[in-house]
Amino acid sequence: MQMPSPASGGIQNSRLVQDEIPIWYHGAISRESAESLLQKKPAGCFLVRISESHVGYTLSYRARDCSRHYMIKCLSDGNLVIPGEMEIHPTLVELVSFHQETPLHPHKDLLTLPCGQEPEA
Rank of each mutant, 00 (worst) to 15 (best):
Leu16Pro: 07
Thr58Gly: 05
Glu20Phe: 08
Ser30Val: 03
Cys45Lys: 02
Ala28Asp: 07
Leu47Phe: 00
Ser8Leu: 08
Val17Pro: 09
Cys45His: 07
Ser33Arg: 13
Ala34Met: 06
Ser60Gln: 02
Glu32Lys: 14
Val17Tyr: 12
Tyr57Asn: 02
Ile11Val: 15
Pro22Glu: 03
Arg31Ile: 09
Val17Lys: 12
Gln12Ser: 13
Val55Pro: 03
Ser8Ile: 05
Ile23Ser: 12
Gln18Leu: 14
Asn13Val: 03
Gly10Ala: 13
Leu37Val: 08
Ile21Lys: 12
Glu20Cys: 08
Ser36Tyr: 12
Phe46His: 10
Ser53Pro: 05
Arg31Pro: 07
Ile11Gln: 15
Arg49Phe: 00
Gly56Tyr: 01
Thr58Phe: 01
Ala43His: 09
Gly44Lys: 07
Gly9His: 11
Leu47Tyr: 01
His54Trp: 02
Ala43Gly: 06
Pro22Val: 02
Thr58Asp: 01
Glu52Lys: 11
Ala34Phe: 05
Arg31His: 07
Asp19Leu: 15
Glu35Gln: 09
Ser33Pro: 01
Ile29His: 00
Val17Gly: 14
Val55Met: 07
Cys45Ser: 14
Leu37Glu: 00
Ser14Pro: 11
Val55Ala: 04
Tyr57Lys: 02
Glu52Arg: 13
Glu32Ala: 13
Gly9Asn: 09
Gly9Lys: 13
Ser8Trp: 04
Tyr25Gly: 09
Val55Phe: 02
Glu20Gln: 13
Ile29Trp: 05
Ile11Met: 15
Asp19Thr: 08
Asp19Tyr: 14
Ile21His: 06
Val55Tyr: 06
Ile21Tyr: 03
Ser30Phe: 03
Arg15Glu: 02
Arg31Ser: 12
Pro42Trp: 00
Lys40Ile: 06
Lys41Pro: 08
Ile11Glu: 14
Gln39Leu: 15
Ile50Tyr: 11
Val17Arg: 12
Gln39Phe: 12
Asp19Ser: 11
Gln18Asn: 11
Ser60Pro: 01
Ile29Pro: 02
Cys45Arg: 06
Ser53Ile: 07
Pro42Val: 04
Ser51Gln: 05
Ser30Ala: 01
Gly9Pro: 10
Ser53Thr: 08
Ile29Gly: 02
Ser14Val: 11
Val48Glu: 00
Ser53Cys: 05
Trp24Val: 11
Ser36Ala: 14
Cys45Trp: 04
Ser14Met: 13
Thr58Glu: 04
Leu38Asn: 04
Ser36Glu: 12
Ile11Trp: 15
Ser51Asp: 04
Ser14Ala: 14
Glu52Gln: 13
Gly27Cys: 08
Leu37Gln: 05
Ile11Asp: 14
Pro42Gln: 01
Phe46Trp: 11
Gln39Gly: 12
Lys41Ala: 10
Gly9Phe: 11
Gly44Ser: 05
Val17Glu: 13
Ile29Leu: 04
Ile23Pro: 09
Gly56Pro: 01
Gln18Trp: 10
Gln39Ile: 10
